[in-house]
Design a protein around this nucleic acid. Structure first.
Lengths: 214, 214
DNA sequence: CCCGGCGCTGGAACGTGTTTCAAAGCGGCG
DNA sequence: CGCCGCTTTGAAACACGTTCCAGCGCCGGG
């Protein structure tokens, strides 16, 4: 009843399923995303849901990708401002973190889904990491995010990947309650400054005086 | 029938339960750790298992902690050798990574368990991170791992934490199949060198020529 | 020797992710 | 128009994590 006919289904239905999952996750986190409920709210049968998404985790990873693309869109329109690379990159992570913390239940659910370990899923997770990397590199350069991928230099990839992973691990910690927004921002700032090693006033390695905070 | 009496039970039983979980996880990964099986093999009832461990994930996190302590023990006896901090730290991560990859199913299962998101569990996960951090700092210094915690300097904590998180995120990626042993080692080496910024032959930041690959 | 408490046992029961399947809907093609 | 192949549906079934509970055995205290 009240079922759309046929043409735009594949797309439309998948979208509605993911949307529903997001709503449920926002409200009650990972466990609240009961697939029967998702199917019901999305107006499809369980079997249909499973035809599109191999597992609950796959569903949430799809949500993660969608949300990340949305963030990328927003970042593209209003890139983090800042005079030097450090400021911009830190700015980006602040935005990204705020985006996650705004809907903690959803974010926790999506993060958890990334740990499923199933190879096919992990590929989708890598897409997420790629999106993040692109945004980081853009912030590094001070450009707007472009869709091109291959022009990332060795050096940019190294730094970007590193920061990306640090941030991801921080989010994982946060998901368990081990980090607050403040400490996340702090640690990201410290990491960025360490890695970008602002050429002005900075000695290297163990001997260096680094003031991480502020 | 064939039930031990009482005294050494709490300890002994928990140990046996964790041990069994490890065996099952080694053999078949996360899903193979069926709690009914664990209970049966460990010779306890399901209820007993649940009295000690609140969830499947808690069980695997306990396993993670135990295995990590074992690694710490081994590291303490044979610390990674190396002339400078970079070499030693890279050496440590190579050892740690090899340790994980030796039993991929188990490692994947334990990693997945860390993502459960339950606060109580997350605390245990933090213990694991702490253990790792201590080993990293020891490698940095070139000392043997000591149990003292508080003498870690700001600088050491920053660098150690950062590398710890990078490695963890890499392991998470590996668990999904996205990283091979080689690329992990490569990336850790590059990260260590970037962060430790070997004073010899190394320029900083975007301009630097960094050859990550061997 | 008996009692009461306590943890353990065995097993049932419940919820939810996942699978399976027959019946039904729908569009294109002859 | 009627058949074919496709997907979707609805519902049942299964697996496993988790919870619950009644009975039992062991223990220390009376």
């Amino acid at each position: 009843m009240v079922v759309e006919h046929t043409h735009p289904n594949l797309e439309e239905r998948s979208r509605r399923i993911v949307e529903t999952s997001i709503e449920l996750a926002e409200r009650g986190g990972f466990e609240a995303v009961r697939l029967r409920d998702v199917a019901a709210h999305a107006g499809v049968a369980l079997g249909t849901l499973y035809r599109r998404f191999r597992s609950k985790e796959a569903l949430l990873v799809a949500a993660l990708e969608q949300e990340t693309r949305a963030v990328a869109q927003r970042i593209r329109q209003r890139p983090p401002k800042g005079a030097d690379a450090s400021e911009r990159v830190v700015g980006f992570f602040v935005i990204a973190t705020r985006g996650m913390l705004r809907r903690p239940n959803l974010s926790r659910a999506m993060l958890r889904a990334t740990a499923a370990g199933e190879p096919v899923l992990a590929q989708k997770v890598e897409v997420f990491h790629d999106l993040m990397l692109r945004m980081i590199v853009s912030a590094l350069r001070g450009e707007s995010v472009d869709t091109g991928a291959e022009e990332i230099s060795e050096q940019e990839r190294l730094v970007g990947d590193l920061l990306n992973r640090v941030w991801f691990a921080l989010m994982m910690s946060w998901a368990g309650g081990a980090q607050s927004q403040g400490t996340i921002a702090e640690q990201m700032r410290a990491s960025v400054e360490l890695v970008l090693a602002r050429s002005d006033r900075m000695t290297i390695a163990q001997t260096g005086t680094m003031e991480a905070t502020k």
